[in-house]
């Protein structure tokens, strides 16, 4: 039985040289990849490009008014970062409800993005924080906005010879949340999730971004809902209308985890919960 080979670079340059090679798959935390490979015979497995040893990909640092995170930052590191708690509470909420302790200790930001699942819990927060991804290859790098990165479930614009090397986003406005529903609280993939980034001024919505997870082929911005909320006070009527609009913007399907009708309705319920929380916190 042939065991697949492993490349374990110590520097980004080495990693970028190896990533384009035939039959090589980059591994960050491995918590999704190794599950997918569980039933694949050893001889059929790809070679692993194990990124753990590339130090520069693990950092959390302020950049301008926002933040720059390395793709190997784990969910647990996000959960425990006091900097992120202040600057990106939505991301912290999402990181702390996903998986289990064991999974969060290994699962990474970059892995969650590269997987391209519409149910990836860190993605709606990254959408509402206007995240920008730095994609590097051995000859250079390019920047892609998170909304332009995903093409469909599991499909992204990441090329075979590229790695996500930095995730940059602005700091959150003064109000934000991430809420999700799953079959149980731990170790379950989201049936539906909602993230928001809101600023209020004199009781009115000055800016708002809302993203919906697991209700379309990719994470979705609820732009009509955002437009409606702009300039309004958050009261019972405006929240109810916003929830109805957001439900209408979702384009969910029936699948093993949930049903389209339920998902559509829960988009409204979760958005309502989050907006009420914001309204009553004033």
């Amino acid at each position: 039985m042939r065991e697949a080979s492993v490349i374990a670079p110590r520097s980004l340059r080495e990693a970028l040289r190896a990533v384009g090679r035939k039959g090589v798959v980059a591994v960050a935390g491995g918590t999704d990849l190794l599950v997918r490979l569980h039933d694949v015979a050893a001889g059929e497995r790809p070679s692993f490009l194990v990124l753990d040893g590339v130090r520069t990909l693990h950092s959390i640092a302020p950049r301008g008014k926002g933040l720059a995170l390395g793709p190997l930052v784990t969910f647990s590191e996000i959960e425990r970062s006091s900097l992120l708690r202040t600057l990106a509470p939505q991301l912290v909420e999402a990181a702390s409800v996903a998986g289990s302790v064991q999974i969060r200790n290994r699962a990474t930001l970059g892995g969650n993005i590269a997987n391209g699942s519409p149910a990836g819990d860190l993605l709606p927060p990254l959408y509402v924080l206007s995240a920008r991804l730095e994609l590097s290859y051995s000859g250079g790098r390019r920047q892609v906005m998170i909304e332009d990165f995903f093409k469909g479930p599991g499909e992204t614009v990441l090329r075979r010879n590229e790695l996500i090397t930095r995730v940059v986003f602005e700091r959150s406005q003064n109000r934000g949340f991430f809420l999700r529903l799953a079959v149980r609280r731990a170790l379950a993939i989201s049936k539906v999730s909602v993230a928001a980034n809101v600023s209020l001024r004199n009781g009115r919505v000055q800016s708002v971004r809302i993203a919906l997870g697991a209700v379309a082929p990719t994470v979705l911005r609820a732009s009509r809902t955002e437009e409606y909320l702009l300039g309004r006070e958050l009261d019972r009527d405006s929240i109810e209308t916003a929830c109805g609009l957001a439900s209408g913007e979702a384009a969910p399907i029936d699948d093993i985890r949930s049903e389209a009708d339920y998902r559509r309705e829960m988009v409204g319920v979760l958005l309502g919960r989050g907006l009420l929380r914001i309204a009553s916190a004033r």
Partner: peptide, 18 residues
């Protein structure tokens, strides 16, 4: 425990614990 933190050893490659 990996450096004191719980992880699943079924989802961990030997090259990741160097």
């Amino acid at each position: 425990l990996l450096d004191g933190s719980p992880v699943c050893s079924c989802l961990l490659l030997s090259s990741q614990v160097a």
